[in-house]
Every structure is written in structure tokens, then in C-alpha cells.
């Protein structure tokens, strides 16, 4: 019951703060449109790179352009949603250094909601839009015999993927509590993660694939379920049901990240640094 209240409290605070930032960014409409467009361009660059590669070859790691676009669309859309919701977390270390983190702790709202909603920027919709467009293209272009489970898996991947990336953002924030200057480390897992997942798993070494499947289970954002949808073997043999395990993996990741965040916050409050 208390947990549920805290969750509702957090969502309410998040909505209030994010709403304030949205209203304030809307006062300059043209500037808003320009930044959304710019964001779309920046995030689109890595797809242009993939297009350039495919201008030279017909397949990468045995996967066609449409199949790679499918991976890309899923990875970028899921990451884009997590980035929209929690993308401001990377300034946490800076806030601890300048002491403004303390001011969050004297307000009657969960700290995670306050940090996550800070500088909420709708311009991040640019990345989601771009990912969704590529995903749309891929859905039309891939050669798949669509069955009901495969159709259902697409939205399931986007939502679970967003949850998994959100968990990475929260875990990264918890890490920043201990290593304030090392905020960039989380980029390796967030931006690095989404880049990794844009390419077929067959491209990478088996050990790397194992690590991303079992240790930091980013593979459940798209690799494992997408391999099932596309009817391609996953480089390390997994039972078929794992294609549907993404929601479960996402739930576990979120729980662990929440635990890490709590531990971090408790440690901050007992050490003051």
C-alpha cells in the first residue's frame, strides 16, 4: 500500500514538473520546432550510416537492410521513449557536486521523479519519431509471415525495451551517486546499448552476445524477440519461449534498478557525498 502511494506520488510529481517544462518550452514555438527537427537529424545520422553501408553491400552479418532496419527501429524507438522519460538523469552527478541535489530532498516528492522530470524536453520526441518511421518502413519491407504472436510482439518489444533502457538510466543515476564525475560511464550502456542493438547479433562475438543476453540483458529489447519474428536463429541457442520473456526481463531490470537507486540514495543520506 505504501509502495503504491509512493508510486502515485512519484507519477504526480513527475507530471507536475514535466508539465511546467513543457509549458515553458512552448512559449517559443519556432525554437521548439527547430530543436525537434535538429534532434531528428542528429539521431538519424546512425541510420544514414547503415544506409551507406548497405549502399556497398546487400547484407550485414547475413541480415538484409529491411531486417537491420527492423532492429534499428525497435532499438531507437524504445531508447527514445526511455530518453524522453529519464534522459535528464545524466546531470545528477553535477547536481551532487554543486549541492543542488539537497534541495530535491527537502521537497515532498520522490527524488527519482524530481530528477527524471527535470528539464523534461519534448524535443526528444525527435528520436522517437525517427525510430518509429524506420520501424514503419521495416514492418512493410521485411519478408515475414505475420502470425498473431509475431504481431503482438512488436508493441511488446517497444514497451519492454523502453522499460529496460529506463532501468539502465536509473541504474546509471544510482552509479553517479557513488562516482559523481563518472557520469559518462552510463553513456556506454545507454547510447552504446542502443547503437549495439541496431546491428544484427550475428555481427558480434559470441561472448559479447552472451554478456548482453545474460548479464546486462539488453538483448531482450529487440535481438531475442526480433530473431523469432524474423525467423532467424539467435547466435547462442535459446529456447523459443525466451522470445516472449521481454516483459519479465524488463520487470526484473526495473526492480533491480529501483533497488540500486534506493541503496544509492540511502548511502548519500548517510555519507552526505
Amino acid at each position: 500500500m505504501a509502495e503504491r502511494n509512493a508510486l502515485l506520488d512519484g507519477l504526480r510529481a513527475y507530471r507536475l514538473i514535466a508539465g511546467m517544462w513543457v509549458r515553458s518550452s512552448m512559449t517559443y514555438r519556432t525554437s521548439f520546432v527547430v530543436t525537434v527537427f535538429g534532434n531528428l537529424l542528429v539521431t538519424g545520422l546512425d541510420f544514414v550510416a547503415i544506409l551507406l553501408m548497405f549502399s556497398q553491400v546487400d547484407s550485414l552479418g547475413g541480415w538484409s537492410l529491411a531486417e537491420v532496419a527492423f532492429l534499428y527501429g525497435l532499438s531507437v524507438t524504445a531508447f527514445g521513449i526511455a530518453d524522453l522519460v529519464l534522459g535528464s538523469m545524466d546531470v545528477l552527478g553535477a547536481r551532487m557536486r554543486d549541492g543542488s541535489f539537497d534541495t530535491l530532498l527537502v521537497r515532498p516528492a520522490p527524488v527519482l521523479a524530481q530528477v527524471g522530470a527535470d528539464h523534461f524536453a519534448l524535443r526528444r520526441l525527435g528520436r522517437i519519431t525517427q525510430g518509429a518511421v524506420v520501424l514503419g518502413y521495416a514492418l512493410v519491407a521485411v519478408d515475414v509471415d505475420w502470425s498473431a504472436p509475431k504481431v503482438v510482439l512488436v508493441p511488446v518489444m517497444v514497451v519492454s525495451g523502453a522499460a529496460i533502457f529506463s532501468a539502465v538510466f536509473v541504474a546509471g543515476a544510482a552509479f553517479q551517486i557513488f562516482a559523481q564525475d563518472a557520469a559518462e560511464v552510463q553513456n556506454a550502456f545507454t547510447y552504446g546499448g542502443t547503437t549495439l542493438l541496431q546491428y544484427p547479433p550475428t555481427v558480434f562475438g559470441k561472448d559479447l552476445v552472451r554478456g548482453v543476453t545474460f548479464m546486462l540483458p539488453l538483448a531482450f529489447v529487440n535481438w531475442v524477440p526480433a530473431a523469432y519474428v524474423l525467423g532467424r536463429p539467435y547466435p547462442i541457442g535459446l529456447p523459443e519461449w525466451t522470445a516472449f520473456a521481454s516483459p519479465l526481463v524488463a520487470a526484473v531490470c526495473c526492480a533491480l534498478a529501483g533497488l540500486a537507486w534506493r541503496t544509492g540514495l540511502r548511502s548519500y543520506r548517510s555519507t552526505g557525498s
Binding site: A13, L16, M20, S24, D98, G99, S100, T103, R107, A109
Partner: peptide, 20 residues
Amino acid sequence: RTTLWWDLPLIDSYKLMHRM
């Protein structure tokens, strides 16, 4: 250090406090 929202007009912080 301020408890106000640095980049926003003063009144926005107050409106937010009102709700929060």
C-alpha cells in the same frame, strides 16, 4: 544554492510549489 527552478521564471516555481 536556490531551491527555485534556475531556468524558469520565478512565478513558475511558485505555481509548481502550489501543486507539489
